[in-house]
Amino acid sequence: MMPKLGLKASTSMAQVNERLQYHPAVFEFYTDEHDMTKNGLTHLEEMIKYVQSFGISQIVIHHPMAYAHHHNEVAVSALKDPAGYQFMMSSAEALIELARKLNVQVLIHGGYSDKEAVVNSYGDFATARQVIFARLDYFQKMGGDHVMFENSISPAFDYGDETIEETVIAHHYRLCYDISHGFIVLHGNNEKLVKSIARLAPQTVHYHLVDSMGQHHDSLELGKGKIDWQQVMKVINPKATSIYEIDLADQNDSREMRASHEYLAQLLTTQQTH
């Protein structure tokens, strides 16, 4: 399957315009704490409508990754960090409401923190996971076909972990599968990665295509890591959208994302001719 070009940008007009000149089919907005203010949400709405005016209908809003210099964690303790909990909930609710209004998607990360941090909030890991799934259930009920959940390298919500995978399947969640996160969780094992992607493909509606060496979060261009893209592309859901979530040297220049698309297109074209 040949993926369409999917690019990511902040809500900055300079970044958005730079991406639009390459005519992406899929557009993902990276949001931050400032986008969740009243003025920020108004600006975000204007930027989504602006992108839609170019004929782009497949738009994803990425829930802010951070709040007050720490992770915007679904598992945040309402008792130990009430301000963090309030931000996490109110931002997710505001984005879901906006997504329903404009007929776009919201992506919520299932977890960021390491196991120790999550355990410190709840005393034990099983309880923390129960809290995460209860909150994801709430977001799913609120958002319906406008919300999806992304895997992490955190054991709080990591595809590749069969317990998590069984639970997300049982809950009928719509999923975003970050390929590099799965690869890192599985310690660089391509065979296990392909099995995980295939298992979750029926519920996966969006992919983050990004390479990795499989050891830690490195967000590499496709072809610069160890992921077997030929095998991966055979098992992803062909109906899902995707973007290239690559670290950029310059946030106003999407060249690493576009180079990844060119690499994948060339790889798949070569594969088809052999």
Rank of each mutant, 00 (worst) to 15 (best):
Lys8Leu: 13
Lys8Ser: 15
Ala9Thr: 15
Ala9Cys: 14
Ala9Gln: 10
Ser10Pro: 05
Ser10Ile: 03
Thr11Tyr: 03
Thr11Phe: 00
Ser12Ala: 13
Ser12Asp: 12
Ser12Glu: 11
Ser12Gln: 15
Ser12Gly: 06
Ser12Phe: 11
Met13Glu: 13
Ala14Gln: 13
Gln15Cys: 13
Gln15Lys: 06
Gln15Ser: 09
Val16Tyr: 01
Asn17Asp: 13
Glu18Gly: 06
Glu18Trp: 04
Leu20Lys: 03
Leu20His: 04
Gln21Gly: 04
Gln21Ala: 14
Gln21Asp: 07
Gln21Asn: 10
Gln21Arg: 15
Gln21Val: 15
Tyr22Ser: 14
Tyr22Gly: 07
His23Gly: 07
His23Ile: 08
Pro24Val: 05
Pro24Cys: 08
Pro24Gly: 04
Ala25Arg: 08
Ala25Pro: 03
Val26Trp: 12
Val26Gly: 02
Phe27Met: 15
Phe27Thr: 05
Phe27Tyr: 12
Glu28His: 07
Glu28Gln: 12
Glu28Lys: 06
Phe29Met: 06
Phe29Thr: 00
Phe29Cys: 00
Phe29Pro: 01
Tyr30Ala: 15
Tyr30Pro: 01
Tyr30Phe: 13
Thr31Ile: 03
Thr31Met: 01
Asp32Arg: 15
Asp32Phe: 12
Asp32His: 13
Glu33Asp: 05
Glu33Phe: 03
His34Met: 13
Asp35Val: 09
Asp35Trp: 05
Thr37Asn: 02
Thr37Glu: 04
Lys38Thr: 12
Lys38Ser: 12
Lys38Glu: 15
Asn39Ser: 14
Asn39Trp: 13
Gly40Gln: 05
Leu41Glu: 00
Thr42Asp: 10
Thr42Gly: 07
Thr42Leu: 07
Thr42Lys: 11
Glu45Met: 10
Glu45His: 02
Glu45Tyr: 06
Glu46Pro: 02
Glu46Val: 11
Glu46Ser: 11
Met47Arg: 12
Met47Lys: 12
Ile48Thr: 03
Ile48Pro: 02
Ile48Asn: 04
Ile48Trp: 08
Lys49Thr: 14
Lys49Met: 11
Lys49Trp: 07
Lys49Cys: 14
Tyr50Asp: 07
Tyr50Cys: 01
Tyr50Pro: 05
Val51Met: 08
Val51Gly: 04
Val51Lys: 01
Gln52His: 02
Gln52Cys: 05
Ser53Tyr: 01
Phe54Pro: 00
Phe54Tyr: 07
Gly55Pro: 05
Gly55Asn: 09
Gly55Val: 01
Ile56Ser: 09
Ile56Ala: 08
Ile56Trp: 05
Ile56Tyr: 08
Ile56Leu: 09
Gln58Asp: 13
Gln58Tyr: 11
Gln58Trp: 09
Gln58Pro: 00
Ile59Asn: 01
Val60Asn: 13
Ile61His: 09
His62Trp: 05
His63Trp: 04
His63Met: 11
His63Gln: 11
Pro64Phe: 00
Pro64Ala: 03
Pro64Tyr: 02
Pro64Lys: 00
Met65Gln: 13
Ala66Ile: 14
Ala66Gln: 15
Ala66Lys: 13
Ala66Pro: 06
Tyr67Leu: 08
Tyr67Phe: 11
Ala68Arg: 14
Ala68Gly: 05
His69Pro: 00
His69Trp: 11
His69Ala: 13
